[in-house]
């Protein structure tokens, strides 16, 4: 008991000495410039946004007044908001699902020796570096009604032309697919890094014990990939829930309001409908949505990891 106390005491004093040598408390000044930026451009807008969400400000007039929870009540009764919220969840959850399935599949395929493996990885990752705006423009060439690649191909087989982007259901699926394909390389690389961190001796030991490929995958690879799952899923969820660029270019939120996400609907409400207070309330909802999903995904995935260990 006494020895432990004295060791911790000594360790603490060493730490203090080290700390003094490295500049002591004054060293904290080094993060002040960064904190000023955050305070000005993230924290203040976030708090100000909460305040604005309780007003009827139109976005430019110097006058506005507090309206209590009116904006939030209006959100509950607004059919467009309900649609938008559903779309946001479809984008978030849909993209996450597609990216995990394809990303993990590609990582497993490209983890083994294969000719052209590096080239394949480089090409699959490439779209992730391109602006989603450009990606949307490029994919528009596929889904356009006249002369679009997809309608040309179905035409060769005697199919009728389809207005892919003017129908809410197909447009939603197209947005999810374009976003998923663009960033599938990111998931692939996260899973590849995860696979490469699994020591070969585990697999070898399982093989010696007579485990077949499926058993090795189920009882070794999958549990040891848990950190990669957590990283990739959280990253894709955030990316999908805040989706903006692709929708703006590919569908513009239409037909009507059918493919808006919360992000695109906020910009429409603020700049076109000039309801800044209402748009701020949506901003608060979007922020809370992402916080809740991120924390939930993190807790669920980390808990599972603990159980499997």
């Amino acid at each position: 008991m006494t020895t432990t106390l004295s060791t911790t005491g000594r360790r603490a004093s060493t730490r203090r000495r080290t700390d003094r040598r490295l500049g002591g408390r004054r060293a904290n000044l080094l993060y002040v410039p960064a904190l000023i930026l955050f305070a000005l451009f993230t924290v203040y807008p976030l708090l100000k946004g909460v305040e604005l969400s309780f007003t009827n400000w139109n976005g430019f007039s110097p006058r506005s007044s507090y309206v209590g929870f009116d904006n939030y009540l209006r959100l509950l009764h607004d059919a467009n908001v309900r649609k938008t919220l559903a779309n946001t969840l479809i984008y978030g959850v849909g993209s996450t699902l597609v990216q995990q399935i394809l990303g993990l599949g590609l990582a497993l395929a490209l983890d083994r020796a294969m000719r052209g493996r590096n080239l394949a990885r480089a090409i699959i990752y490439l779209p992730a570096l391109v602006s989603p705006v450009v990606m949307g423009t490029m994919y528009y060439l596929f889904f356009q009604y006249n002369n679009g690649v997809l309608n040309d191909v179905t035409g060769w087989f005697g199919g009728e032309k389809v207005a892919w982007l003017s129908s809410a259901n197909t447009a939603l699926i197209i947005v999810v697919m374009v976003n998923s394909l663009q960033f599938v390389g990111v998931s692939m690389i996260i899973y590849l890094a995860g696979l490469q961190s699994i020591p070969w001796m585990y697999t070898e030991a399982a093989m010696l014990d007579g485990a077949d490929a499926w058993q090795r995958f189920r009882y070794i690879t999958l549990p040891l990939l848990q950190p990669a799952f957590a990283t990739s899923i959280v990253l894709n969820l955030i990316g999908g829930l805040k989706l903006f660029d692709v929708i703006k270019v590919l569908t513009g939120g239409g037909p009507g309001y059918a493919t808006n996400s919360l992000s695109t609907f906020i910009s429409v409400t603020y700049f076109d409908a000039q309801s800044a207070g209402y748009a701020s309330a949506m901003g608060v909802v979007l922020f809370l949505l992402i916080v809740v999903f991120t924390i939930a995904a993190n807790t669920a995935l980390n808990r599972r990891r603990m159980e499997e260990m």
Binding site: F38, I238, L241, K242, I266, A276, G283, F287
Partner: peptide, 17 residues
């Protein structure tokens, strides 16, 4: 924690600031 904040959620106050 700041990494979670989607840019569009602060669009209105950021633009007016």
């Amino acid at each position: 924690g700041l990494m979670m904040i989607p840019p569009l959620s602060v669009l209105v106050p950021l633009y007016s600031l």
